[in-house]
């Protein structure tokens, strides 16, 4: 599983990345977490704002910090 956190590096983006990494660790599932900071790369996903979370190519949230439980639901659904 591949999870991407889109964001240029602001506090909300960092908080999102932290939640994603903790959710992955707590779920015990095998997933790679990448942070995407390049604006042109972010634009390819068609998102209106950041942070955004992508799970296996699917945009799951935009412009907000998702909670760990919400993130766990996404990654468990993908497995």
């Amino acid at each position: 599983m591949e999870i991407k956190v889109l964001g240029p590096g602001c506090p909300k983006c960092e908080a999102t990345e932290k939640n994603v990494k903790e959710a992955v660790a707590e779920s015990g599932l095998d997933a790679r977490v990448d942070k995407v900071t390049d604006v042109m790369e972010i634009a390819k996903y068609g998102v209106f704002g950041t942070p955004a979370v992508i799970v296996d190519g699917e945009v799951k949230s935009v412009g907000k910090i998702p909670g760990k439980n919400e993130i766990k639901t996404w990654i468990e659904q993908q497995h």
Binding site: Y45, G46, F48, A52
Partner: peptide, 8 residues
């Protein structure tokens, strides 16, 4: 990406 952006 567009649909999720509008939803959020």
């Amino acid at each position: 990406g567009f649909v999720q952006s509008a939803a959020d």
